[in-house]
Design a protein around this nucleic acid. Structure first.
Lengths: 111, 111
DNA sequence: TTCATGTTTCAATGATTATTGAAATGACGG
DNA sequence: CCGTCATTTCAATAATCATTGAAACATGAA
């Protein structure tokens, strides 16, 4: 993960609606959720939702696919785990007290 | 962790200079680093650095203390781990394939 | 084709934010 | 006290972003 990509992902998450969307999709899992259901659950106007989904997708945090008239969205768990790992990379390596096992986060197999 | 607090932390990290600062401090560990050394290593002007450190601190991501003429900064690892946990909370709970052990990230004792 | 549903795009407005340079504060040694 | 170093604050400019409403596009059913 490069700096710019991480900044883009963090910026995508740094907004209340988008963070709520992302967390909802993380909780839902790899099956994904249709845009309309996201809009309904989070009370976001469809056009606003589309705007935010676009932001999350172009940052690489979401995958999407079409099923009939519905468009499903799900987190890109690999990207998510990569971002988390990037934030904690080399944790405490420069510390004298580096007995702390600042290991990378355990990640979800499915994710 | 509440939504607004998470958004504030993510927004603080969603900027190239601030993300670099944070990662440098994470790598350095709980001993912290003086503002001047951060500025020198990352080639950031002192006033710009102060601006960004303020952003990270007021988001709760950094702790700081004074030692003589120097001001030291270190990550608030508890806040960092809380943010990571917030992002992955309830991971895949809504999925039929929820055998995936989307456990919270393993966190650093020291952190 | 025609219609209804689901989703996306466009354009305009208002608000927030990064950057730069200059000045000011606080702490230490002489 | 005075000078210097480390850090912070202030003010002004430019750029980016969220929101809203209206319109357009795509899909499937009648």
């Amino acid at each position: 993960m490069k700096l710019d990509a991480a900044v883009e992902k963090l910026a995508a998450l740094a907004q209340a609606s988008r963070l709520s969307i992302f967390r909802l999709l993380v909780a839902k899992g790899p099956d994904g959720m249709a845009a309309g259901e996201i809009a309904e659950r989070l009370k976001i106007a469809p056009n606003a939702l589309s705007f935010h989904l676009k932001g999350l997708s172009s940052a690489g945090l979401l995958k999407c696919w079409q099923e009939g008239r519905f468009v499903y969205y799900a987190p890109d768990f690999k990207a998510m785990n990569g971002l988390l790992a990037y934030l904690t990379e080399h944790c405490c390596e420069g510390s004298a007290k580096n007995d702390a096992a600042c290991a990378p986060a355990k990640t979800c197999k499915e994710c």
